[in-house]
Design a protein around this nucleic acid. Sequence first.
DNA 1: CGCTCGGTTTGACTTTTGTCGAAGGCCGTG
DNA 2: CACGGCCTTCGACAAAAGTCAAACCGAGCG
Lengths: 322, 322
Amino acid sequence: MAIRPAEQLIHKAAWLYYAHGLRQDQVASQLNISRASVAMYLRKARETGIVNISTSTQLFTDDVLARKLEDALKLDAVWIAPGNDHIADPSMEIAVLAASVFLELVKKGDRIGVAWGRTVYTIADIMSYADLQDVTVVQLCGNLGAPYSYRPDQCTMEIARRLNAKGLNFYAPLVLSTEELARALRAEPVIREQLSGIGECDLALYSVGAVDADSHLVKCGALTPDEMAELRSRGAAGVIAGQIIDADGKLLDCSYNRRVISAELSSLRAIDRRLMVVQEDSKFEPLLAAIAGGLCTHLVVGARMAQRLLDHAGAAASEKAS
Amino acid sequence: MAIRPAEQLIHKAAWLYYAHGLRQDQVASQLNISRASVAMYLRKARETGIVNISTSTQLFTDDVLARKLEDALKLDAVWIAPGNDHIADPSMEIAVLAASVFLELVKKGDRIGVAWGRTVYTIADIMSYADLQDVTVVQLCGNLGAPYSYRPDQCTMEIARRLNAKGLNFYAPLVLSTEELARALRAEPVIREQLSGIGECDLALYSVGAVDADSHLVKCGALTPDEMAELRSRGAAGVIAGQIIDADGKLLDCSYNRRVISAELSSLRAIDRRLMVVQEDSKFEPLLAAIAGGLCTHLVVGARMAQRLLDHAGAAASEKAS
DNA sequence: CGCTCGGTTTGACTTTTGTCGAAGGCCGTG
DNA sequence: CACGGCCTTCGACAAAAGTCAAACCGAGCG
């Protein structure tokens, strides 16, 4: 194919332009091609991650609020997307920030676990490209034959594609109809291997789901609204990688959880850096549960959520003191 | 000072422009400033490393020659700057490449050892800025009160400045007039500490010097041309961090070496990643000596030098076989 | 109080870059 | 061998970014 020489050219053009600081016309004459071609090559270079443009997310951790939250919640790092800021869609802002933070956290040779949800997919969608050939992206939970475009495998694959990394999908349904079958499937070598590989991840990216009728679990038919309500009344507080957790961040003892094929919470906790991103203000309780369960070490949230978390932590502390 | 609010603005402008992909005029209207200001802020952002633009150096390792060299010399990675390439100054090309490679090798939290020389200073000079607050750059050898602008401490400081990192200088002369004094100085707590800290570096950056009258050691008056010639006849093959090594890469047993305050070769070898950069074709033997001594794991050279190294390795191998 | 100094900010101008339709080349296919 | 699809390249134009001198602002000082 005619792509090989182009690859070379793209690389060379990017090199001369970005590393040497030549102008496009200078690059063009060096390479004996037209300036327009250079412009095109450079776009490709940016799109394929041959050149990386990243902006420090320092600003968002520098926030006093972020520092306080890190202390109060014992997290390694917190990033806060300023809420008000003019017109821009606030949830998008969080996603853009999360994508930057994510790219900043990825290191060469990493194995990255990715869960699924609208948040994760949004992040994948706006994430810029990078060139990390020795990175592996693994799917943290089984698949959901969803009507949505953000199925678990798609989240994984899209992120792998952006990173030029290897994607490792999980070829099992997220939920099975009987506990029996789930157990049997989990015992399958392929699945077993995938599941045990999760603990070896260096970085995880996920969000937390709410326990309500709007949950994907309901929308995808894994649970009925009634079942969801019942789980809620039994203490369900959030959804992590397709599993239901209670307010302490522990796996809820229920049939549903036993029918799920997903990363065990203990495997998740074994991952060094666990980046949790929460866009919706409504996910306050689920997020508290996830934090209580030690499921996140790095957190990206909006300003309002950050304030609520801090208020809550403060209230809990003073309550304890009294 | 009025810099603080500007810092914020620079950050915000960079964020909106690079992360969100807005145009400069859009950023300007969001921030209620003129587009010209935005342009200025963005330049500052690039200059201070708030935004990072890096191009993959993949191309230069992909070279078959580079692969062969890695095998032949048992190095972790080799980058080859294409020699002929049109008009551009070939030694500059090597420096630009080396700077990119260096930035690619630096990780957060690293401690970096830097030696000195024209090569290192050239690299420092063209290196782009980055924002690595938790990095420390340490000087690998004592200072030379040189007529040059690239004194050891300046190399260290300049690199630290570019990286926004901490610079740790070495407040001792490189060469003393008596072995006695050198020994005493090395025993000083401050110096001792600095020297022992070298083994804890994660990354080293240096070049290798030639043993001839053009050497900095001669130009700076540390050695006379005659002394140099004598050392050469006694087996001196190269200069590493101010110390003379023989063709096997071992420290040459001579008075000069005993009068030097610098990183011990064993400390250097204890560093994980040792990036050696050689610009001049004339440094073939010194480079061979450094490689023989295991003083480099990562190598950046020009195409001609690469070819010579490979030829040499091939010849040595066939000689051995016969 | 008015002055200068260092800096930021601005509008106007220039240069550089992005983009588009058209043209050219290459390859597999009919 | 001609044809059509696909990609690269080109020239020209429009949009965006860079630059510069002049205006502005606030702080410190005589």
